[in-house]
Design a protein around this nucleic acid. Sequence first.
DNA 1: TGATGCTAACTTTTT
DNA 2: GTTAGCATCA
Length: 761
Amino acid sequence: MQTYLEGLNEQQLAAVQHIDGPLMIVAGAGSGKTKVLTTRIAHLMNSGVDAFNILALTFTNKAAAEMKERVEKALGNTEARNLYIGTFHSVFARILRSEANKLGYPNNFTIYDTDDAKSVIKGIVKDMNLDDKHYKPAYIYNRISAAKNSLLDPAKYRADTFVQEEDTRSHRPLIADIYDQYARRCFRNGAMDFDDLLFKMHTLLHEYPDALAKYQGRFSYILIDEYQDTNHAQYEIIKMLGARNENICVVGDDAQSIYSFRGATVQNILQFKDDYDDVRVIKLEQNYRSTQTILDIANSIIGNNKNQIPKELWTSNDEGEKIMLARTMTDNDEGRFVADSIKEQQMRNHYANKDFVVLYRTNAQSRSFEESLRRQNIPYKLVGGTSFYQRKEIKDYLAYLRIIVNPQDEENLKRIINVPTRGIGKTSIDKISVRANELDVTFWETIANPDIEGFRSANTDNFVMMINNFRTMLEKENAYDVAFFVGKHTGLVKDLYNDKSVEGIARYENVQELLNSIKEFTETPDEEGELHDKTLGSYLQQITLLTDADQDKAEDADAVKLMTIHAAKGLEFPCVYVVGMEENLFPSAMSLYDRSDLEEERRLFYVAVTRAKEKLWITYANSRYRFGSLVQNDPSRFISEVPPRYVDTTFTGTSNTGTPQRSNTGNLFNKQSFDKVPSLKKLADKLSAPKPAAHNPSPDFVPDDVSTMDAGMQVEHQKFGYGKILSLEGAPANRIATIEFGGGHGTKKIMLNYAKLRIVG
DNA sequence: TGATGCTAACTTTTT
DNA sequence: GTTAGCATCA
């Protein structure tokens, strides 16, 4: 027996040794899924399959990198370099890059991230003279994204009666037009958004039989990780790619499906058996990760969901400790509690920093933990969140690099045409846009092509000359040299260097970090072990698809990790804190009115719990600051799904009064009254507030239940003082009141979920 | 045209 | 509590 096969259990071994034909591995949390996938790849290669013919698709770059590394280790040679392993998006981007001309795109097409895409949409909404309060770019982006993930192009979108009815019902009948415009504009800009990478890949395979044949032949063995998170477009692509050989192996766990908001459908995994003849199904049900207690809790939680593939996860691990449940007064106390608890665990049990993770539902929750960890001098690492690449200075820098590679890209061109200022302001930009539309040419053509009656001035001529100058470097110089040159000659780097404010220094450092990462890219050998394609074009192609979670070797650093539960999928930690377990937060307020949404939130909780190997804490706060004002929430309903026998009831948490509080599952749901003491800073802010009409809330101000409010009532607002509700609108979950205030505040529209109101009469 | 300061809108989750 | 976008002033 091969050494790499040692230590596998019966099911794992069966999965690894299955070679030809469709295979579905239902892999419960912690059941050794990655091990099976990587070992199977190693085994395929050992059985004579050429690495070049193996395609493995994952959802994160990190998972891909890990897979590659582990295969290499199992094989003990470098053949693994020839594997085609990557995320759906990066693998398809790479293929599309070489086939772009078939679809009428430049090879150096730009990849738009969500912000870029929304900005294009915003421009269209504006050009169509629509109200962007109603036609919100984010909403439209989601509609378009969903359409692409369902493989609906603009024409099909318009023709689909169900989709049209939805748009009519939401009073946004023109989305089809916007989608149509959006697709045209992206095409004209030589740009693809995230969803296009799937959508166009499908188009390529569907409409170009030679391309289909080529990739069917190339990828004779296909493995897909996290299959429960694939959407319809991905499903169809996989089906086409695998049709010739049907050597498709999917791995997934329906209980961990948490990406339906991105179009993922559990149906894909539930139906897999019916999609192919003779599907081999192997279930991995032994958990090697967690204690018996943690696993029991997880099983108990997921048992509340209706739709599942039946399976029972078990472990031979020790029972372990009971989990700990802590209630704190505020979100800040929650932060303090977690930091104190980590400190205590480290002293008592000698855990390293990297043994801890704090998991939350939304990125915005990270603040209180960052602050408290910093105060305790505990090193921490924030994973995900506002991406490095979303910072202004980085986006500007990248915008330059993008238009050098692809000057068609109007979005990025407009972004930097006047950065640093060079006398091409809003007026000029508008004039250029108008002229471009009249001539039906790109924005760049309008200022750069001397053969047409475009728009030119001394300022634009200088700009064009500069960009053209940069462009001449593309062929000969590598990404770093071009980028460095650009920074120098545009004055971008110098301007930041001269800015000695705190933010300015940070921005300068960020830009340096960007340059370092480009340098690193140019110096890292690619798959073939060579410094092949180290051009700027190839750098940009991958950069948009990188997320912070992939960024650096986050795992290596000895620091406490802070991340969303979504970002934690696939990871494991000895000690896990699941925080912010409150109604409206987790489960999210958006998910309370739909059974399937709620079940997804529950799966998310399941994912959170199953990250823990040894110890688990669940915390929640009585009240927390949201949008600057204090909000009270009930404890999450999910807490009551944790069987009390697994919860340590002698355990004590902390409160802001300094009195330890007994956390007791028996009285968790008694709403406790507590002193509403505004923090000192808040008080100081209020006292020094220069605003003449600032309202001091009554000392006994306690917000009332939103659902009891009605038109005609007199209310008190924390900031605007007393007023009368004129009318109510919106869904019960998100009611908006029009309120007439006194004290010169006038009539305001207030979202009742966020602003707190007290009924006066 | 460009910098500055204020207000409104904002929070799911990510490739 | 934060940030983007707008209005205002230089």
